[in-house]
Write a protein that binds this DNA or RNA. Structure first.
Lengths: 333, 333
DNA sequence: AAAATTTGCTGAAACCTTTCACTTCTGATC
DNA sequence: GATCAGAAGTGAAAGGTTTCAGCAAATTTT
């Protein structure tokens, strides 16, 4: 069943049916009603595949994130989705799960679907595949990740965020500080670590006073596992405070620390990153570095739309938000 | 650029290119290599829209959930996605946000895209739109929601879960118990409430010993707001324990209770529902009713595939999982 | 009244893939 | 040497939408 059937039933040409669907104002009201009636009677539903084929591009944008299980990304996704919806675009949420292959897989998929555009938080570097997609005319905006002039991006100053977190710990009197996060191939992680180092230097603390514990992933389970590593350290090397690269890690570590009957922040102060909703509701409310999640999504989507509309004369832009430290009990007993 | 260009470059017919793409074994190795080479040289990417148009249905399934911000649903989504991936299907995650209109919107969208199938946790009743989609030949499986014989569904016994939760509170000596959840139009909520009532009856407690507080949504903010309502109750009416219809509510309420300097479970015992990862990491580790989230997703996807393959002779099935009570400190000081 | 413009509608062409009936060729069998 | 079977490849048709040049009628302008 197709526009042809609708046209037959309404006694008009198929071109007119298409006009009713896409430019109703160009059709005489009487005709329009007749067509609408036929559509209703036949239960006609537009075939999006045919539309796309004809149009050459779809009305779907792909949002590729590192972890849908992380509330940071779902909040970001909400911002994207709301903004996209206003332009009649839908969002397909893809979970790369920190995995290069999955990322690659989703990129191919989006390319085959002739996605309207792609928002991506890359697992590692910006790959050749991404470059190729961009060159083929599909707008690509980097999310939660800075970029060079040759690409649009929306990010939060991760280095500064790391600095904020560690400077705060230092101001609380800590001198041996741990950094928990990984893999280092994730840009956000290495930037936050760089910020941590910078804060140490500013306070004239020795390089090796920052104990770096690399985790395989940025999730709650990895955070819990970190408890063992910390406990295994000789007391004089063991940090009195840690900065976790995200809240999931921090919550996991917090949970494990309490399980070991240690006090937070007494025995170990903890700072997280992202300030997800659960951070405030945790065993000990978590000090965290807040990022404007929804705004980030909105800004990214707006950049994408801008790039899509000004196809040629588009000037790539890099938007950088500033993070904010939210102090709670996990660092101030 | 299309198969035609590839064919021209490789010096074969377009039918052969298609064969290389879809049934490589039917093409002589030499020819196959030549075609592959041409594909690489031209950077050819299959047009999914054209495939779909030809095939009549897409390779995408829609998963419509009530709240992507709820880890329960993202865990469920992971189960769905993994299982779908094995059959070469992709998943588009749609967030109805407890809103009828949004649900309707997404259903239309999926219908226009000729989705391979739909997994949905309906906001309210099973609507005429859903029926229509099913009749049009698209498999629809209800998720986290039971159904009649006329439809496939995968659910968890919510009534029993409610019973477990409240029976546990009663066993801890509580006699005035609160139920927090809403809106009641959400099936899971009313079922869990029904279970709560059943538990009260079994213990010979009066009907009005169960104080029902209806919330507008099932999120952390609504949970926090419930603190006010509880505080406003006269002491002799105020429950000593509450059962929250999900963990987000429970975490919100927990947070607010602690803010008021009350003790959990001393002044108020709290049971949640879902046992999301954050439940164990909260201020006071939360007693909760665990649901097999990933399994739920997997089972739903399998039912969908079954329904899709046996189009005609398909016998609708209803799978019901049993929930499990996980006791933690929020109910056992 | 004639000319010009606007309005309303038509229908063929294009978008790209897959399928399938068909042809051609190679090698084997009797 | 004729017949047959199988392998390899061909190319037209179908699938549903949108666009656009073009046509006829109605309306306005000269």
């Amino acid at each position: 069943m197709s526009v042809v059937d609708v046209a037959a039933r309404a006694g008009v040409s198929l071109g007119t049916v298409s006009n009713v669907l896409n430019r109703p104002d160009r059709v005489a009201p009487a005709t329009r009603d007749r067509v609408m009636q036929a559509i209703r009677e036949l239960g006609f539903v537009r075939n999006e595949a045919a539309r796309q084929l004809r149009a050459g591009r779809s009305r779907t944008i792909g949002l590729v994130v590192l972890d849908v299980g992380n509330p940071f990304f779902t909040d970001l996704a909400k911002g994207v989705e709301t903004t996209a919806g206003k332009s009649g675009l839908s969002v397909i949420l893809c979970n790369s799960n920190d995995d290069d292959d999955r990322e690659q897989h989703y990129l191919s998929l989006l390319q085959e679907q002739r996605a309207f555009g792609i928002l991506i938080t890359p697992v590692g570097k910006v790959t050749a595949a991404m470059e190729a997609i961009r060159r083929s005319g599909t707008p690509v905006v980097l999310v939660d990740r800075g970029s060079t002039r040759r690409q649009c991006s929306v990010s939060v100053n991760d280095r500064y965020g790391g600095e904020l977190a560690v400077a705060h710990l230092i101001s609380q009197g800590h001198k041996r500080i741990g950094f928990v996060g990984g893999p280092m191939s994730i840009n956000q992680v290495s930037e936050r670590l760089a910020g941590a180092h910078a804060a140490m230097r500013s306070a004239d603390l020795a390089e090796d006073s920052l104990v770096v514990i690399e985790t395989p992933r940025l999730d709650v389970a990895s955070g819990r596992a970190t408890g063992d590593e910390l406990a295994a350290l000789p007391a004089r090397r063991r940090p009195t405070a840690v900065f976790c690269a995200n809240d999931l890690l921090a919550l996991g570590l917090l949970q494990d620390t309490i399980r070991r009957q240690k006090s937070v922040p007494g025995d170990l102060a903890i700072v997280g990153y992202d300030d997800i909703d659960f951070a405030a509701a945790s065993a000990v409310p978590l000090t965290s570095v807040r990022q404007p999640r929804a705004q980030l999504g909105q800004a990214a989507m707006e950049l994408l739309l801008e790039e899509a509309s000004l196809a040629d004369g588009h000037q790539h832009r890099q938007i950088v938000f500033e993070p904010e430290l939210v102090v709670r009990e996990s660092t101030t007993g």
